[in-house]
Design a protein around this nucleic acid. Structure first.
Lengths: 125, 125
DNA sequence: GATCGGTTTCGACAGTTGTCGAGTTTGATG
DNA sequence: CATCAAACTCGACAACTGTCGAAACCGATC
């Protein structure tokens, strides 16, 4: 796999949020933990994980609720609830166009979480 | 053991299971979501996030409960509870030596979660 | 073997979460 | 304007979570 070494700068990861070094590198401050834990919590549900994946991997980078909801066994209101959790966690954005609401992933926070979990390659499993 | 009915466990994901492509690349299967959501859930608490960070960033790669517990305001049993959640999620391992119990991070799962959240660089925030 | 310190387990309790059905809002179209 | 469809909000309820104090467990040391 090609390793295009364009280093991410802090600016790439979102303006106000403090971009964190990996948790395996420095002890995470309490305030940072309090800020980022809700994002992990939002990912801690199988339905929300699938929803985010469907949104983030969708053609054009966005997905309509009318396409998301039928993919699950649960009721419409429950899907709406899960989308709200993802929204309030800062992982997705919603936009209404005509009768439909389209969701779009916000990659900034996802990158932060991924960076946080990065482990040095030399460490063995 | 019958493969077809036994649900995928966290431990199974370590060695030969194909480590998941980013959720922004392909729609994540329901079974993968069900397997990995508990790991995110375990990270969804500020205390557990700090505990994991203290463990993963500790000198020698391990940390004693006797060093972890005093770093928080909560009671000993509650720290123990959070460590159990991290353990059952597959994020840490525990080992008793003499009177003390040492915790060590399991980087395999952390790498999987990080890979899952990876977003293509070309995507703008 | 009795005791002690470190850690976990147990039982209880308040607060949160996931789920649903019913009702509400929003925009399009007859 | 009336109606319809899409999506959300509300209220309720069972299940789960974080927390604690008390008790149990496990090695070490007396």
């Amino acid at each position: 796999m090609s390793k295009s070494v364009v280093p991410l700068t802090v600016a790439d990861l979102g303006a106000e949020a403090p971009c964190c070094p990996p948790i395996a590198q420095n002890r995470i401050p309490a305030q940072t933990a309090a800020t980022l834990a809700p994002a992990f919590k939002a990912l801690g549900d199988p339905i929300r994980l699938q929803l985010l994946s469907m949104i983030a991997s969708a053609e054009g980078g966005e997905a309509c609720v009318c396409d998301l909801a039928p993919a699950f066994e649960i009721s419409g209101p429950t899907v709406s609830h899960h989308l709200k959790v993802l929204r309030e966690a800062g992982l997705v954005d919603a936009e209404r166009r005509a009768s439909w609401v389209y969701y779009r992933a916000r990659p900034g926070l996802m990158r932060q979480l991924a960076a946080l979990l990065t482990v040095d390659e030399s460490v063995s499993v």
